[in-house]
Nucleic acid binder design. Structure first.
Length: 214
DNA sequence: AACTCGGGGCA
DNA sequence: TGCCCAGAGTT
């Protein structure tokens, strides 16, 4: 298992590898951020951005989304996977925002997670990006990279991975951790091809050392 | 813990 | 063509 300084070293190397790894979502307001992240489940950012460009021109508030039919909203996000469910979730979410939060986005993870289509990962992204609250959003990339490197155990659940990262990484690094690991996982330490032969973390990585032996 | 949703991107 | 993808909800 990696210690704290080894993990910090990993994060530093990842930052060197992908210096422009920053969230494209920072410029969005909290409400748009919620919508964008709900849409992004199981599909790429590029695809989501293509849809939100027009979507955010047409809809600015929760009321705007409730003013059209479900079918119309579904058509507006049709090019994204799982678009039927996502449209339903967005409508439910907007109803709750209007009824319970005066049309505003709640500022706590607990409240956010209760919203339709918002799970733990989405809630963490929203609080960290929109409200500057330290959080580590664990998606499949963060999970895979953490497990391969040896930051956590292979059998750990997503929640356990998040807890371990929070315990071993200083709080001020939490929000950055997500984006560094995402880029590292997406472009280098890929699910099928970890690219160990060109990896600068090979001498630290648990899985990498194992792979290079065989 | 396993299953489902799902169109687009990419090999 | 076939496989995979910045997850969440249900059983």
């Amino acid at each position: 298992m990696l210690n704290k300084s080894q993990i910090q070293q990993c994060l530093d190397v990842m930052e060197d590898m992908f210096p422009d790894a920053e969230c494209e979502l920072v410029h969005k307001n909290p409400f748009e951020l919620v919508i964008a992240v709900v849409l992004s489940a199981q599909c790429t950012d590029a695809l989501v951005n293509k849809v939100t460009k027009d979507l955010f021109k047409k809809y600015q508030t929760p009321e705007d989304y409730l003013a059209v039919s479900l079918e119309e909203l579904q058509q507006d996000i049709r090019s994204i996977g799982l678009y039927r469910n996502k449209a339903k979730n967005i409508r439910k979410l907007c109803e709750v925002l209007m009824e319970q939060y005066n049309g505003e986005v709640p500022r706590s993870k607990e409240e956010l997670e209760k919203l339709a289509g918002v799970g733990r990962k989405t809630a963490n992204v929203v609080v960290s990006v929109a409200f500057n609250i330290p959080a580590i959003a664990v998606d499949t990339h963060v999970e895979r990279v953490s497990k391969r490197l040896g930051i956590c155990r292979w059998k750990d659940s997503v929640l356990e991975v998040e807890k371990t990262l929070m315990r071993k990484i200083p709080e001020h690094e939490w929000s950055n951790t997500h984006h560094r690991m995402i880029f590292f996982g997406r472009y280098h330490c890929k699910a099928k091809n970890p690219n160990c032969d060109t990896c600068p973390l090979l001498d630290i990585c648990r899985e990498g050392k194992k792979r290079m032996k065989t």
